[in-house]
């Protein structure tokens, strides 16, 4: 059963940006990663799902209800984490969470206390005085504490330290095993990779692809920076079939799509000093999709 459905959704802003003819759906119990660089239209889509904005064309539904007109009913079953968190700044963390509970008429606070403990949040501090990461924790707790069926999470791990990021990913996986449906946006592939079943890639407001995480992984292009002992080794690699990028002294960049076997066997005959994965932008990771899109735009 489709929990979230997006049908021909179009919303254009005055500056020409927006989202155009989006079509996708998220099934029950699925974690859907919504991936795209900043400004691609991720938040615009989520605003539509939350019923904040009117669409120009098309529509979206959650649990079969129209996101704009049935927002009140939908919100009973949705946990939402905004991309830019703005609270009632004069409240403390706990006051805010209790306020949201009161707005939701939620009486049960077990999940809230459990999450406060889990994310090691000091809830007595004024929100105004909190760091970005602490605010993010408050946002996550507010989104999860009423145990909803559906989660809509906009860049959920931004601002969290690596330990808390892992903690969060664990939470998502637990919720998934409890049959919850999740859509989460991100501009970092690694974060989506560890939780999602399917991934939608968006660029310039258009959905470039919706694919199974495994097929995406196998077609991913990764760049390794290999440091070798001698310059001769570089000559050896140059002779192989591997795709070679910049060479800097005894360091060479090698791009791999799925030919890991080639890569390893070539390297095995060289003396390797070190291997690093190059941090790449999303465009570079998804060269395959973005490349096509780029050509179409020209």
């Amino acid at each position: 059963m489709d929990i979230i459905r997006v049908d021909g959704l179009t919303k254009t802003y005055r500056n020409g940006k927006g989202i155009f003819d989006l079509d996708f759906s998220v099934k029950e119990g699925e974690v859907f990663g919504y991936l795209g660089p900043n400004g691609a239209g991720k938040t615009t889509t989520i605003r539509q799902l939350m019923g904040f904005t009117n669409a120009d064309k098309g529509n979206c539904t959650i649990l079969g209800l129209d996101c704009r007109s049935a927002a009140e009913e939908i919100q009973r079953h949705v946990g939402y984490l905004p991309g830019e968190i703005a609270f009632f700044e004069s409240m403390t963390g706990l006051e805010f969470l209790e306020f949201i509970n009161a707005m939701r008429k939620t009486k049960n606070t077990t999940m809230m206390s459990h999450l406060i403990e889990r994310f090691e949040l000091d809830p007595t501090r004024k929100i105004r005085k909190m760091s970005k990461g602490m605010k993010q924790k408050v946002g996550i707790i507010a989104a999860f504490m009423h145990d909803p069926k559906v989660y809509i999470l906009d860049e959920p791990t931004s601002g969290l330290d690596p330990l808390m990021q892992r903690n969060f990913i664990q939470l998502i996986n637990e919720e998934k095993s409890r049959g919850k449906t999740v859509i989460m946006s991100s501009h970092i592939f690694e974060e989506i990779e560890r939780t999602s079943d399917r991934v939608g890639v968006i660029r310039d407001g258009r959905l470039v692809t919706v694919e199974d995480i495994h097929s995406i992984k196998s077609s991913l292009r990764r760049v390794f920076v290999v440091t070798l002992e001698t310059v001769e080794d570089i000559e050896h690699i140059k002779k192989s079939n591997l795709e070679i990028g910049a060479i800097n002294g005894r360091q060479v960049e090698i791009a791999i799509n799925s030919n890991y076997q080639d890569f390893i066997s070539t390297l095995s005959s060289c003396s390797v000093v070190g291997i690093d994965i190059l941090d790449q932008s999303l465009e570079q990771v998804f060269m395959k999709y973005y490349g096509e899109g780029g050509n179409r735009n020209e």
Binding site: M50, G51, F52, A71, E72, E73, Q75, R76, V78, Y80, P82, E84, I85, A86, F87, F88, I100, M103, R104, K105, A142
Partner: peptide
């Protein structure tokens, strides 16, 4: 303007309310 309206609207209360 600050965005805190998003939190009010993410609770099961209609915009009208």
């Amino acid at each position: 303007d600050s965005g805190s309206m998003a939190y009010l609207l993410s609770t099961p209360n209609s915009r009208l309310k």
